[in-house]
């Protein structure tokens, strides 16, 4: 196979990573932006989404598409509810103090992980994709009679992966509309800018916080559900996505939706490319170096504002 098909393959794999990553990082960024909480347990909500997807799919036990749809509709709200309860029981009690919330969410991380290990167990388990057609991708080559299409061996994707990319685009658009065009979004943005003044204008800040924490966790869970037909559900699966989300959020600039999406694309696609040509480990090394450079030369992130 020549170089070109490899590039396309890397791009496609990278777009899938970017899709999942942007949803997850957006959740992290929302929670930090509005609540000033660095949620170290964010990766666990991703894991809970995937594990719940497996549990729900098994409980429904029907056609794969039905199982998956049930998981997609139920797992994220259930995870969001869990997070909202954690907000009330834990974060509110430490008054959203920035340092204490970090410690509190580290505690949350281990509790969620261990409870999952004790109930769901240490195995990695798959959920069958709702549909999974193999799609071969044609490429052009020059022959004596001019340009011609051919199907290089190994260049292909699945309909499910394309659907993941499409779903992420739709969801990101929906979140953007929610934040910019609705009253709920307006209230969230006002709370983010000045929570005391928001209170003075009748915004129930506690409830906004619970909702934002739930929304952030719900987005992570959604990413987990989308990934589980590709990756399998496992109680430790939250670590890498958490790290990558932090990288995305630092590069993109905290609280910036476009920044988050661009940085997720950057990280996802370079991850895909480097993994296809070299090794996934090199991809992680380069991403981490990228973060170091951003922190040195543009600490507010590519799209962030100074003084955030």
């Amino acid at each position: 196979m020549e170089l070109g098909p490899y590039l396309i393959l890397g791009l496609l794999e990278g777009l899938v990573t970017a899709a999942v990553l942007s949803l997850m990082a957006l959740g992290l960024s929302l929670v930090f932006g509005v609540m000033r909480v660095v949620n170290v347990a964010h990766g666990e909500f991703f894991m809970v989404g995937a594990v719940l997807a497996w549990i729900i799919a098994n409980a429904v036990d029907s056609h794969p598409a039905v199982n998956f749809l049930a998981a997609l509709l139920l797992a994220p709200p259930a995870t969001a509810l869990l997070a909202a309860i954690a907000d009330r029981l834990v974060l509110k009690r430490v008054a959203y103090d920035p340092e204490r919330t970090i410690v509190a969410t580290i505690g949350l991380l281990y509790i969620i992980q261990q409870v999952t290990l004790m109930t769901y167990g240490p195995d990695a388990r798959p959920v069958e994709a709702p549909f999974n057609h193999r799609l071969s991708i044609p490429f052009v080559e020059w022959t004596e009679s001019g340009m011609a299409l051919y199907w290089p061996w190994g260049l292909g994707t699945t309909s499910y992966k394309l659907a993941v990319i499409g779903a992420a685009v739709l969801l990101l658009g929906a979140i953007w509309l929610l934040m910019t065009r609705t009253r709920i979004g307006l209230v969230m943005r006002a709370t983010q800018l000045d929570s005391e003044m928001a209170r003075a204008f009748a915004v129930p800040v506690d409830r906004v916080y619970a909702a934002v924490f739930g929304l952030g966790a719900g987005l992570a869970a959604l990413a987990g559900v989308l990934i589980v037909p590709i990756q399998q559900a496992h109680y430790l699966m939250g670590h890498d996505p958490l790290l990558l989300s932090f990288i995305v959020v630092i590069i993109g600039g905290l609280g910036s939706l476009p920044g988050t999406v661009v940085a997720a694309l950057l990280i996802g696609i370079s991850d895909g490319m480097i993994s296809v040509f070299f090794t996934p480990t090199l991809a992680k090394i380069i991403a981490t170096l990228g973060v170091a450079f951003v922190l040195i030369f543009r600490p507010q992130g590519l799209f962030g504002r100074k003084g955030l």
Binding site: R183, L186, V187, R189, A190, L193, D194, E196, M197, A198, A200, F201, A202, V203
Partner: peptide, 24 residues
Amino acid sequence: YIPQGRRLFAELTVAENLEIGLMV
């Protein structure tokens, strides 16, 4: 309440700041 130093929602537009007041 008109607070000292105005304390507007800085990144919201004029219309959005008023909307916050109207919603009360």
